[in-house]
Nucleic acid binder design. Structure first.
Length: 671
DNA sequence: TTAGGGTTAGCA
DNA sequence: TGCTAACCCTAA
């Protein structure tokens, strides 16, 4: 009985642990019984890690195992690689499921020393790096201190079963790609496709060993082939050729005498270990010497010519294992096809058929579970389109990684398409006035149509768009002209310096809740009129106004950065006086306008209404009327002043209008 | 990387 | 069963 050497142990472990059909219990028994080699084979290293991962697929320890696995040399894998997917799935689950998300996510994903970040970043493991992994790392880092993102990430990565599934997929891919063991390589050399060459180069002593391993029948088969090939392949027999051949044979014989073939000893040792550790019911000593008792290495129980079990003989590593999955083995072809495969003793070829963890079609057709878009995502997408323009989905996505978690640029594009479906897009500033004017005309048209349906009523309504330099250009064509020009009324030459209006530019600042703020302004909560007014437009947007720049002649709605900053500084303290929560909101942008302010009277600041005939001068039968000085309160006054002025125009009687609105005529305009 | 048509799943 | 939102596929 040869003594078990460290090399023997290496061979056994390399072979048995690298075979996924060897149960975990048997693998553990082998590891416990045999000394673990100081320099294990790559196959053995990989096998140990895979078995460790299989036993503990989703944990901090599994993350370590994955890092070690990634450090092993590997063949190119599909993208995304199973190990990258498994790694980020485990890391994501660990952070998402941690009681303290911030601490866990920071430890794993934060710059510069997060364990997972270092693994997937540049300079880390190429096997673990993928676009998805990098994006996920960024999302988790951004989610530290961001409760909204954490909720989303928990939803995406907090499923332990999903993480384990990624690890199982990795394990399946790794086992399928596991190469042959050293023993299998040796067996292939002795009884496989290259056996003829091996036997040809072997001396008689070595062939005798081969004969024991291969069995008599296989030996005869190989020797017949060897003889045929020698006579066929070597038709030219010259003294020089014979000399070279002899030299090669001598060389091979010397090599074999120095390097002992590992197969017999390894096989014997494996038999012994398995027999003692796994199948204690078998009495090894009953049959005498172990190497001889093993009989031929090749024939399995099933392949025995007599179909009977090898009674009394210890089970061999090469014997059929009832739990083994033989579909992974590709049977050696039978070139002659003369003998039924079942009756022909042979060692299986160590070549493996690649086994995909999942059928290709299943991977291809895997559809993400639909995830509804939240309000914040929609709002951020809206803002993104405003900022970057429709079509720049990648920019919008990459600039909002903490909001668009798990979304792709195509998702953004599709979502925007849905949001725009059946919705008229908000007009640009330039077009807004036109659209509003047309809307106003349509409303008037509808009124005229309704009036025309009444008996004895015929109304006609027409819209003309025409530039006029002065009021007299209109005088000949109309009975009445009502001037509603706001602050620009004073630009008419007939009214210049005659109206007691003061211009006042006001800046309105828009604020939004940061994307990471979960608490929103209540839907039922009111807008606020205070020292500054706050008009809430939805739960996350508010306009705050307004500043007071008296006598301004800047009619532009555009606000410079400096003006915006000044306005913000002016408005925020006023707003926080009534709504302290405004400090949590972000300034977004500002816009401005000119309001026409009426004089302050004992009745307050009231709009300026009335007939302008005296001011304009009576050159025709046309009467001119003014509606102005509404300040910032047009919404409040427009109904009343419109009705009063219409009545007065129809009656041609200014007295229809209360004197509080017409008393301004006695006030001298300020210069 | 994007646009646009097609497919699928969930819901009323 | 039809509609819609989310997702997928493919050409440019």
């Amino acid at each position: 009985m040869p003594r078990l050497t460290p090399a023997d142990a290496t061979l056994i472990l390399d072979h048995a642990l690298g075979d996924p059909s060897v149960p975990a219990a048997a693998a553990h028994a082998l590891l416990a019984a045999l000394p673990f080699p100081s320099d294990p084979t790559p196959r053995l290293r990989r096998a140990v890690l895979l078995r460790r991962l299989a036993a503990d697929p989703v944990s901090a320890s599994a993350l370590d195992t994955l890092h070690l696995l990634a450090s092993l040399p590997a063949s190119p894998s599909p993208s995304p690689s199973p190990i990258a997917a498994a790694h980020i799935a485990v890391a994501g689950f660990l952070a998402a499921s941690a009681p303290d998300f911030d601490a866990a996510a920071a430890a794993l994903f934060a710059r510069p020393d997060g364990r997972v970040r270092r693994a997937v970043d540049e300079g880390g493991s190429r096997a673990l790096a993928s676009d998805d992994a990098v994006a996920t790392v960024e999302q988790f880092e951004a989610a530290v201190g961001n409760s909204f993102s954490q909720v989303v990430l928990r939803g995406l990565w907090g499923d332990r079963d999903a993480a384990e599934e990624r690890v199982r997929e990795l394990l399946a891919a790794e086992w399928a790609g596991m190469g042959p063991s050293l023993l299998e390589v040796a067996a292939e050399r002795i009884v496989g496709d290259v056996a003829v060459g091996t036997w040809r180069d072997a001396d008689e002593a070595t062939r005798a060993k081969f004969r024991v391993l291969a069995g008599e029948e296989k030996t005869r088969e190989i020797l017949v082939k060897l003889e045929e090939s020698t006579s066929r392949v070597n038709p030219i027999s010259t003294p020089e050729v014979s000399k070279v051949v002899d030299a090669l044979k001598t060389s091979c014989a010397e090599l074999h005498s120095v390097v002992e073939d590992p197969l017999p000893a390894a096989k014997a040792a494996a038999d012994k270990v398995l027999a003692t550790r796994i199948n204690r019911t078998v009495n090894l000593n009953a049959e005498g010497g172990q190497p001889a008792a093993c009989g031929t290495a090749g024939p399995s129980v099933l392949n025995e010519r007599n179909n009977g079990p090898n009674k009394g003989a210890p089970p061999s590593l090469m014997d059929w294992n009832p739990t083994a999955r033989t579909f992974q083995w590709e049977e050696s072809p039978d070139p002659e096809g003369s003998e039924p495969a079942l009756r022909r003793p042979h060692l299986p070829s160590p070549r493996r058929i690649p086994v995909s963890p999942l059928p290709a079609a299943e991977n291809k057709n895997k559809r993400r579970r639909a995830r509804k878009w939240c309000l914040l995502e929609e709002e951020t997408l809206r803002k993104g389109v405003e900022l970057y323009g429709s079509g720049n989905w990648k920019d919008i996505l990459s600039n909002n990684p903490d909001v668009f978690i798990g979304r792709t640029p195509v998702d953004l594009k599709d979502k925007w398409r849905n949001m725009m479906r059946g919705i008229v897009r908000p007009p640009t500033t330039e077009k807004a006035a036109d659209i509003l004017l047309e809307a106003l005309f349509s409303a008037c048209q509808n009124l005229a149509d309704e009036a025309s349906s009444l008996p004895n009523e015929q109304k006609e309504f027409k819209l003309y768009r025409q530039h006029v330099d002065n009021l007299h250009q209109l005088a000949g064509d109309y009975d009445s002209v009502i001037i509603c020009l706001g602050a620009k009324a004073c630009s008419l030459p007939e009214l210049a310096n005659k109206l007691p209006l003061r211009t006042c530019r006001g800046v309105i600042a828009e604020f939004q809740l940061p994307s990471d703020t979960v608490e929103e302004y209540g839907n039922q909560s009111p807008s606020i009129l205070s020292d500054a007014w706050m008009a809430f437009q939805g739960p996350r947007t508010v306009s705050i106004g307004s500043t007071w720049q008296w006598k301004s002649e800047n009619y532009s709605s555009t606000v410079s950065d400096e003006e915006a900053l000044t306005a913000k500084d002016e408005l925020l303290p006023k707003a926080s006086g009534v709504y302290p929560g405004i400090s949590k909101w972000d300034f977004v942008h500002a816009r401005a306008g000119i309001r026409a302010m009426p004089p302050l009277t004992t009745n307050g600041s009231l709009p300026l209404l009335g007939c302008l005939d005296e001011m304009v001068g009576k050159k025709s039968n046309c009467k001119f009327w003014l509606v102005g000085g509404l300040g910032a309160r047009g919404l409040l006054y427009h109904g009343l002043v419109g009705k009063l002025t219409a009545k007065a125009a129809i009656c041609c009687d200014e007295n229809v209008i209360p004197s509080e609105f017409t008393c301004w005529k006695g006030i001298k305009p300020s210069q």
